[in-house]
Structures are given as C-alpha cells and as structure tokens.
Amino acid sequence: MTEVVSIVKVGIAEINIVKAPQTIRTSGLGSCVGVIIYDLSKKTAGLAHIMLPDSSMAKQTNFNESKYADTAIDNMIEELYKNGARKFALKAKLAGGAQMFQFSANPDVIRIGQRNIEAVLAKLKEHHIPVVATDVGGKCGRTIEFDPNNGELRVRTVSKGEEII
C-alpha cells in the first residue's frame, strides 16, 4: 500500500503549519525569503513566505502580518506552540533572498532580498532560534519543500536542479 503524502502549499505572504507525514512547500521565491521553523522530535514545522523585511514599511492600516519578517516570525512561533512545538527545541532553515535584477535606481527595491535575509536572521536571533542551514542570496528563483519527518529542506532552482540542505 502506498501512503498518500500531502503537500501543504504556502503562497506569497502566507504562513502555514504542518505535521509529518505532511510536507510543506512554497514556490518561486525570488527576493522573498522562505523561513522554516521546526521542532524535529514533534515532527512539526511552520513555513512563512516573507516578502518585506519590516512591518514599519506598511502603508496600510490593516496589513497582512504574514508579509513582513518581524510580524510573520512572531506569529508563526505562536502558532507552532499551539501545535505542540517546544521553545527549546525550535530550529530554523531559510532560503531565498535573491536579487533577480540589477537595478540602477529605486532604493526601495534594491537589495530587498538581502534586507529580507538580515531581518529574518535578526528576528530568529531575538527568539534564540538556531539557524541550521541556509541557501540565500544569488540571483535565481527557488522552490522549497520541507519534510518535518527528517528535517530535510529540498531547494530547487532552474539552473542547478535540486539540493537538500
């Protein structure tokens, strides 16, 4: 008998939580950062597809908190606790933060990938969550899939195929 493994998809500026045997995936990360926080022995993981570094950039009153690194990570950690994950066991992996085009103007868009990476790392540090693997920067898109059963993060790019980190 084959076991049907379902893949939970996370769209842009969204967060989701899974437990094994489910896996969790987000597609087409460019300057966005995909951050996974997980408790391996509880086989529970959350994935956030973060678009912008800081919610202070929001020019909306009712903004989507999953869009920004600071609010998304705070919220995801809360969700993980509700799903049985334990603070001391949490670890993180991240991928993305590329610079897809080399711009000459427009400071808002320049280095947004790099700024996303820095914001995510700073927030994880604030929560004392160790970062065990990263595949960040560069100038290519990434699709990532995390398996909370073994902690493997599959990173697929157009040019290099698939790698596991």
């Binding site: 460019g30 300057s31 966005c32 678009m51 897809m100 290519c140 898109g141 157009v158």
Partner: peptide, 14 residues
C-alpha cells in the same frame, strides 16, 4: 530573466 514566474513577478509587486 529566465526563471520561475514567482521570483520574477514579485519584483513588480514589491
């Protein structure tokens, strides 16, 4: 750019 649609189009959405 020749790459994933999500990665390319996000630039215009930032």
């Amino acid at each position: 750019s020749i790459d994933m649609a999500g990665a390319i189009l996000t630039v215009g959405l930032l």
